[in-house]
């Protein structure tokens, strides 16, 4: 899976935001913390959910099971707005 090209990741005011363009099925705004930033970075290429979890475990300290849950939650939210391409 990867990020739908109709969504653009942009950094401003020190925050990462996910911006839907005119063609996107969603017309709002996603603002994220550091972990969302890493997940979006991973999704710039075709990756599996496990690969994203591996990268998150490399960058952040924490229980793998909890990280898996967080990643699954973010992916589900991005999926629900059409931001994921499979």
């Amino acid at each position: 899976m990867k990020l739908n090209p109709d969504f653009i990741v942009h950094k401003m005011d020190g925050e990462t935001v996910l911006i839907p363009t005119a063609n996107a099925p969603f017309h709002g705004l996603i603002q994220g913390n550091e972990s969302v930033e890493v997940i979006l970075e991973c999704l710039s290429e075709d990756v599996t959910q496990d690969e994203i979890v591996d990268e998150m475990c490399r960058r952040f300290r924490g229980d793998r099971a909890l990280i898996e849950e967080d990643v699954a939650d973010v992916i589900a939210r991005l999926d629900s707005i059409g931001a994921i391409q499979r």
Binding site: H10, V17, I19, T21
Partner: peptide, 13 residues
């Protein structure tokens, strides 16, 4: 506020 953030980002891009 969200609209302003979105518009600003689109302008920057």
């Amino acid at each position: 506020k969200k609209k302003a953030i979105r518009k600003l980002a689109l302008f920057e891009i």
